[in-house]
């Protein structure tokens, strides 16, 4: 069932949480000097598509150079030692290489897909048991080609808008959001905090899922 398109994470009126403010690290310091444009951010998605479709090792090396320092930084900030973080980064990068066929650029930007893989692996390691993950909804290559090419571009535009919205937030609120996604907040802190309207992005991804379901159904009927 398609619910109303705007499930809102809107936090107007939600008080900022104290826990997030006391020792918030600055993680977006370099943003103003090197603000990625939507086209530049799209680069990583292009690299991942090249890895998926052409097993392109140069594109993989670019992904490695872009993501491995960021992943290591995120994992260390969420409590891992440098050595443990590097082990996880290694597993994440090899998972990207081996599971690239599952990547669907109409639903996820490269950074979103890699963010998920990193969380999965980190939690496998920390908890010493496999993290429960949703069943994969697999996009076969042939259905992917029939989907609108501009779906990924649309996702990119939404992402650019969300990035602007994050940047426009008051400093304290922005830091809470960053800390939440980096993995520094507890479940209870996240329950109190929130703060990001993801309704339009959700609707776009929802649409991509509907198209995928539809095309998978058509494939089965052929």
């Amino acid at each position: 069932m398609l619910r109303d398109a705007t499930i809102n994470f809107d936090t107007t009126g939600t008080p900022p949480i104290a826990a997030g403010q006391a020792f918030a690290g600055k993680i977006m310091d370099d943003r103003k000097s090197a603000k990625p444009t939507p086209e530049a951010a799209c680069e990583q998605t292009d690299w991942l598509v090249a890895v998926r479709d052409k097993r392109d090792k140069l594109a993989f090396a670019r992904l490695y150079d872009h993501f491995s320092p960021r992943l290591k930084g995120m994992l260390v900030r969420s409590g891992m030692t440098q050595a443990a973080a590097e082990d996880v980064v290694q597993d994440v990068m090899l998972t990207i290489w081996r599971k690239a066929h599952l990547y669907d650029e109409t639903r996820a930007r490269a950074s979103a897909w890699i963010y998920r893989i990193a969380r999965n692996r980190q939690i496998d390691v920390i908890r010493r048991r496999p993290r429960p993950v949703p069943d994969e909804l697999i996009a076969e290559a042939e259905t992917r080609e029939t989907r609108e090419a501009d779906a990924a571009i649309g996702l990119e535009q939404e992402a650019a808008q969300l990035r602007e919205a994050i940047e426009a937030l008051p400093e304290a609120q922005r830091e809470i959001i960053e800390r939440a996604y980096v993995g520094e907040l507890t479940q209870a802190e996240i329950r109190e905090a929130t703060g990001l309207a993801l309704g339009t992005i959700k609707s776009r991804i929802r649409l991509a899922l509907e198209k995928l379901r539809h095309e998978l159904r058509d494939l089965r009927e052929e």
């Binding site: 069932m1 398609l2 619910r3 499930i7 600055k26 993680i27 977006m28 310091d29 370099d30 943003r31 990625p36 951010a41 990583q44 993501f67 491995s68 320092p69 960021r70 992943l71 290591k72 930084g73 995120m74 260390v76 440098q82 973080a85 590097e86 980064v89 290694q90 639903r107 996820a108 930007r109 490269a110 950074s111 979103a112 897909w113 890699i114 963010y115 998920r116 990193a118 969380r119 949703p134 909804l137 996702l155 939404e158 992402a159 969300l162 990035r163 994050i166 959001i177 960053e178 996604y181 980096v182 990001l196 993801l198 992005i201 959700k202 991804i205 929802r206 899922l209 509907e210 379901r213």
Partner: peptide, 30 residues
Amino acid sequence: DECRARLEAEELAGGLVLDDLKGMAPSDDL
């Protein structure tokens, strides 16, 4: 699929934060 889309939207936001994160240089060994 409704909640799958919401989860993937969250991951998109997580990816944005990851993209802007100040990294830590990995070792050559890695």
